[in-house]
């Protein structure tokens, strides 16, 4: 067994897997292990009722491909385009003995289903005095870079992170995606599982066996002492790229990937800032009332005396996600912006 600095525990046989394949593996193995796990959503298989190919989609990004042929339409359920009904069915089923994995496809579609998420699933346990549990996963793809326009590119993780009763998971690589999906399915609370659409083809070494990554434990893809960079989801990739460039200049960055933003590993961030005294947060979401401002507030409140420079947030601007490639590229935080922020906190 080897433990890497990025918290990856590798045992047994491994394969190079994409983010997409890693999630598919987690779903397949959990469905084999536990007959109460079901999948429902639009096009999770595809081709229902048509004259053409069965399993025509396997999810619009192919994440659930092959599951319906193995488990049947009773457990991999294609639904009409009815997001509120999908989430409601998952939440009701979760309270009655199933562990549903509901897919919202593009997480932007949360809008038409939001009541079922934040007023229903998230609040059941509290409203009912702890007498119910709602073990469900809501999958959605987030983020820009696909030129998909304003209604298919949002992050929106901060909106769900705000809600007590939900857990929010944002894997930045295939290894974490598999382990976090296993944990999400086995978890007894409603979990929002956000997959960044730009990362589906990203690959890394992934164990073939099932493993669960506990929620609330950050990973440390780069370790350093000069500046703390907290990044999530696809921004971890950019933070690592920036850290590697800076390393060549003799600047040592401590890159933290919280992996789950609810619960959030506060201690990992605070402990790092205690050493570095400098914090840059990289978040693809909008800046106001967002994850970056939340982490800033936590550090300002609990780590203020460690800080040697003001906290810098590198986020998207306060606009919807634009369509034109030039605009979208300017919208998503770039490696250059991360570099500039790090240099800035170092008195640049």
């Amino acid at each position: 067994m080897t433990t890497h600095s990025n918290n990856r525990i590798i045992t047994g046989k491994t394969s190079i897997k994409t983010y997409r394949e890693a999630i598919n593996d987690a779903l397949r193995e959990e469905m084999r292990r536990d007959p109460t796990v079901i999948i429902l959503g639009e096009e999770v298989s595809g081709g229902a009722g048509g004259n053409g190919q069965d399993d025509a989609y396997g999810g619009v990004f192919g994440v659930t491909k092959g599951l319906q042929p193995e488990f049947g339409r009773g457990r991999v359920i294609d639904t009409p385009i009815s997001e509120a009904a999908i989430i409601g069915a998952a939440a009701g089923a979760a309270n009655n003995g199933l562990r549903p994995v509901a897919e919202l496809m593009f997480f932007d579609f949360i809008g038409v289903s939001f009541d079922q998420i934040f007023n229903q699933a998230a609040k059941f346990r509290y409203m009912f005095g702890g007498k119910s549990k709602t073990p469900m996963v809501i999958r959605g793809t987030v983020g820009g870079g696909w030129r998909a326009g304003a209604q298919h590119s949002s992050m929106l993780h901060s909106i769900v992170t705000h809600i007590a009763g939900l857990k929010v998971v944002m894997p930045s690589n295939a290894y974490d995606a598999k382990g976090l999906m296993v944990q999400a399915i086995r978890d007894d609370d409603p979990v929002i599982f956000l997959e960044h659409k730009i990362m589906y083809d990203n690959a890394c070494e992934v164990p073939d066996e099932q493993y669960a990554i506990p929620f609330g434990e950050a990973a440390f893809p780069r370790q350093g002492t000069d500046v703390t960079i907290v990044a999530i989801s696809n921004m971890v990739t950019r933070a690592i790229e920036a850290a590697d460039i800076l390393a060549k200049e003799g600047i040592s960055c401590d890159v933290i990937d919280p992996r789950t933003v609810s619960p959030l590993d506060h201690e990992a961030i605070l402990e790092s800032v205690e050493v570095t005294g400098r914090l840059v947060i990289v978040d693809e979401g909008n800046p106001r009332c967002g994850l970056a401002s939340d982490i800033s507030a936590i550090v300002a409140e609990r780590g203020f005396y460690s800080l040697k420079a003001p906290i810098r947030m590198v986020t998207a601007p306060h606009t919807p996600v634009p369509f034109a490639p030039e605009l979208e590229d300017a919208y998503i935080p770039s490696v250059e912006k991360v570099l500039a922020a790090v240099r800035d906190v170092l008195g640049g």
């Binding site: 457990r75 069915a89 009701g92 003995g97 199933l98």
Partner: peptide, 12 residues
């Protein structure tokens, strides 16, 4: 929508 879920669980 939630009651559908209870019904889906019963059916499954």
């Amino acid at each position: 929508p939630l009651v559908n879920g209870a019904a889906l669980a019963a059916k499954t």
